[in-house]
Computed example of a mutant assay.
Amino acid sequence: MRKYNREHTLFYCDPPYWDTEGYGVDFGLEQYAQIAELARTIKGRMIISVNDIPEMQEAFKGRAMQSVAINYTVSGLQGRGQRTELVIRNF
């Protein structure tokens, strides 16, 4: 990100959803805090999508947030149901 951090750059971040399984990587709350700090300090614009839960609302407090309803699918099949996702931006 440092290499491309310019006022005209748009970064999209889609980190693993907190408190879900199946990613196979450790991604703790401190890493969401690092993304939130980047959103506060970079020159460019940033859009972040995470699951809509209180921990994420707290981690990205102070940024513009919108809760968006989405339908999850598995392999193109309906059935996982409707959830909400947070779309966060620094502009």
Rank of each mutant, 00 (worst) to 15 (best):
I42M: 13
G62M: 10
D52I: 08
Q57W: 12
M46N: 01
E55N: 09
Q66L: 11
D52E: 05
G62A: 11
I53H: 05
I48P: 00
R63I: 13
N71P: 02
S49P: 05
P54C: 05
D52P: 02
A59Y: 01
D52F: 07
Y72I: 11
A59L: 10
I47M: 11
K43R: 13
A39N: 00
G62H: 08
F60N: 00
V68A: 04
R40P: 00
K61D: 11
V68D: 08
Q57E: 14
K43S: 13
A39H: 00
L38H: 10
A69C: 13
P54V: 10
I42D: 01
P54F: 06
V50I: 03
V68S: 06
T73Q: 14
Y72F: 08
T73G: 03
R63K: 06
A69S: 15
M56K: 02
N71T: 14
Y72G: 14
T41W: 02
E55W: 07
V50G: 00
A59V: 08
Q57R: 08
I47W: 01
S67P: 02
I42R: 04
A39M: 11
R40K: 15
L38E: 06
N71W: 10
N51W: 11
V50W: 02
I48D: 00
K61H: 12
S67M: 06
N71V: 09
T73A: 06
R45N: 13
S67K: 09
V50P: 00
S49A: 14
I53R: 09
I53E: 08
I48S: 00
F60H: 01
I70T: 15
R40S: 15
R45T: 15
S49G: 13
V68M: 10
I47F: 04
A69N: 11
M56L: 05
Q66P: 00
M56N: 14
G44I: 03
S49I: 10
K43M: 05
N71G: 12
A69W: 09
D52M: 08
Q66T: 15
E58V: 11
G62Q: 08
R63W: 10
I48M: 03
